[in-house]
Design a protein around this nucleic acid. Structure first.
Lengths: 196, 196
DNA sequence: TGTACATCAGTGAACGCGCGTTCACTGATGTAC
DNA sequence: TGTACATCAGTGAACGCGCGTTCACTGATGTAC
């Protein structure tokens, strides 16, 4: 008799609440996310989340951590599914980056938002660091920039992040009927290390 | 007898409310901005803003419009005060862009935020368009990109915007003690039209 | 296998708070004559 | 210059609402023996 209602002990309420919160964010942005709505979406009383998160901020950070993991997965999956030379790998993670920004706009906004900026939550910090590592790994396939480490990463990352924002604001067209300028046209060029 | 208390007819309450709202945003971000707090900051009853704005959204859009004007002023002033060759002008507006992002972080966040994205308020739309024009004017001093118009603008703008975000998240250092990588090192290169 | 018991993860009522909004009001300003 | 009057831009009380949080509670789970 594995099914039938479970009035107590949801099983994995924490995960369910994070999912519910992501839905609410996607539907109505940050203003739509409250503990009470999240609990209701997870079919649980509004006091239940207190057993799993330290207030609204705790929920927000847990959501951001989950978002970073998914963000990383977009990049890693794209890289794994593409060709394996350096240039292709770099293009793949950039595609993953931009796809995530488009498919999950609310989460993309969240992870680069002010309240998340200074969060110390280790789960969140680790998830964030992992996303950045993916970029670094891929940049490591190229010759270091003459000015030193991290410069390649910043060149790529600045471009792709800015491009994502401009696309969100529909600023990539000379006029409304024109196609959007593709990222390929503005992507900085790096020099691969070896003949891969 | 020009002074003495003015219980009614503030003079320019609308402007005072926008200023008060900017202060509140700077102090505590979007969550700190409410009509009641804004009215209190402007030393006015909490019902007074209704005579000047269409609710909180109206105030928010007015603040965003004011922010765009100030943003534009940062770029235009920097350009006017620098050397006048094409490359210097471009560097100047980029410096203005980055200075604004740093000096007015809350406003920078606001003008590129979701709630402002789809606002139709003409004052706001015009202020936004003007900021973008400044970049276009300056890019017009360079040869058009082989792929057509707007490509130079997108290259510069993506980089500088992304760089501003990375700096905000303190991601411009290989390690905590290192200096931040300067924007000069990642700025895309354009070809000036004439020998200015 | 059964029983006692501690702990965990929910419920639902209650609370106080700040919010946006409404409304009758009133004093200041501007205009007509 | 003076008077009447409409309009404008404030006040302050009142409202209902959704919020986070607290609290006593209870049923389910896990553990000791």
């Amino acid at each position: 008799m594995p099914t039938k209602s479970t009035p107590h002990h949801h099983g994995n309420l924490r995960r369910a609440l994070v999912s519910a919160g992501i839905e609410l964010l996607s539907e109505g942005g940050r203003a739509n996310l409250t503990l009470r709505k999240t609990a209701a979406r997870a079919n649980v009383s509004h006091a239940a989340p207190a057993h799993h998160f330290d207030g609204l901020d705790g929920l927000l950070q847990a959501i951001a951590a989950a978002a970073f993991l998914q963000f990383t997965d977009y990049m890693v999956s794209a890289r794994a599914n593409g060709q394996q030379d350096a240039q292709s790998q770099l293009q793949s993670i950039v595609r993953g980056y931009l796809d995530f920004a488009q498919d999950h706009e609310a989460l993309f906004d969240l992870i680069f938002s002010e309240p998340i900026k200074n969060a110390k939550n280790p789960e969140l910090v680790n998830a964030s660091a992992r996303a950045f590592e993916v970029l670094s790994e891929t940049c490591a396939l190229f010759h270091e920039h003459p000015n030193g480490p991290l410069v390649n990463e910043i060149r790529i990352w600045s471009s792709v992040h800015g491009y994502a924002i401009l696309r969100k604001f529909d600023r990539l067209r000379p006029h409304p009927a024109a196609p959007a300028i593709p990222f390929d046209w503005i992507m900085p060029t790096l020099t691969p290390k070896a003949n891969t």
